[in-house]
Design a protein around this nucleic acid. Structure first.
Lengths: 200, 200
DNA sequence: CGCAACTGTTACCGATCGGTAACATAGCGG
DNA sequence: CCGCTATGTTACCGATCGGTAACAGTTGCG
């Protein structure tokens, strides 16, 4: 992967991250930790070491930037799932448990505010916001992934169990923002094991 | 209750709802359906058939209005729980199931956006916002109520089961905003029955 | 009646919002 | 080297934000 040619890497040493990527990185940080509506485009641009004008050359509006931000994080989440799927190709039950575990570890971090897509769904109720399509596609996609793995694990009522896992994960993500991490995370882990173990 | 004196009810027939109550009613509707940050104080005042000036005579700031709005809905939720508790005084298991059922019926309504307190928690991440104290007190209080009823129902691991119920309810409230009502509500009901039935 | 408290109305404040025009600069490829 | 494209900079736009001053009813109560 990092093999490449031995010489001729000056254009890599200059390594200027293009502004669009810097803007999306800044948006990911700010929108997640402070909220989408709470953060103005000027702050996003400044945090990306650029300015509003350059931002608007890459994104036609704030709503478009938000949609692109959501595509970004949705892509990362789905890629992480697929990476884990490859590692547990022949063990769907282990895959699901590993996913729950990974999510749990992420939610343990004190700066975690749960799932960025879920939070965005609550912040953006307008049905015609360009971000909503991204949100719904991602959540439906993850639900399908869960259901497929539950079926592969030979669970009876796989669809319902998949939905129950989705509820638990989403519930943990928001509950940690109100009653803290400890209780929700313990309940999440225990309940997931139970759904996948004891349930037929 | 409505007995009162037969004459002399003109001041009741005039029945002017005082502005503060009208403002809180308007806030409850607007903040819930459109989001707290998305709604300005001017719109709240106008929807309450009054104006900004009168609003600021009753609430020292928008943040204070938000906190009062949250106190309002938290109080209503807790009152509904207590009302249901009285009706199932000697049947804690039935009480919990009835509560899940009531929440499920509420989430079935097409205009439902899940729990207003949970949504507010996601919209207001600033730790020193006056609404956060209300949010956390309410959520912790509901968790305590669940745990007490689980203990009264003789469940072993009552605290963990209470947390699992809380996760399911919060999860259903947010999942219906992304993947729709059907799946989450079916999973919620089934899982709750299971937690309270099959679990020792 | 007369006074006081509450409510309504209008106009305004500074700050910030999303978004744009105009121009200067830099870097890269022909 | 020239010219084009992408970026940076500054200044600005109208709209809206939360919040307030000043004044005009209105209402109820002594």
């Amino acid at each position: 992967m990092t093999a490449g040619r031995p010489r001729k890497v000056p254009e890599q040493s200059t390594a200027v991250v293009p502004p669009r990527a810097r803007i999306l990185a800044a948006a990911q940080d700010l929108f997640y930790h402070q909220g989408i509506r709470a953060v103005g485009v000027e702050l996003v641009a400044a945090s990306a070491d650029t300015n509003k004008m350059t931002l608007y050359r890459h994104f036609s509006s704030k709503d478009e930037l938000v949609a692109e931000y959501l595509k970004d994080v949705a892509g990362e989440i789905e890629a992480a799932w697929d990476r884990l799927a490859a590692r547990h190709a022949d063990d769907p039950r282990g895959h699901i448990l590993a996913w729950i575990d990974e999510m749990g570890r992420q939610m343990e971090r004190p700066e975690s505010r749960g799932c960025p897509i879920t939070n965005a769904a609550i912040e953006l109720p307008e049905p015609d916001h360009p971000g909503r399509a991204v949100i719904e596609a991602h959540k439906r996609g993850m639900r399908r992934r869960f259901a497929e793995r539950c079926r592969a694990a030979g669970l009876k009522d796989a669809d319902i169990i998949a939905d129950q896992l989705v509820l638990l994960l989403d519930g943990a993500g928001v509950a940690l923002q109100t009653i803290g991490r400890k209780g929700p995370l313990a309940a999440l882990r225990r309940q997931a094991e139970w759904l996948l173990g004891k349930a037929q």
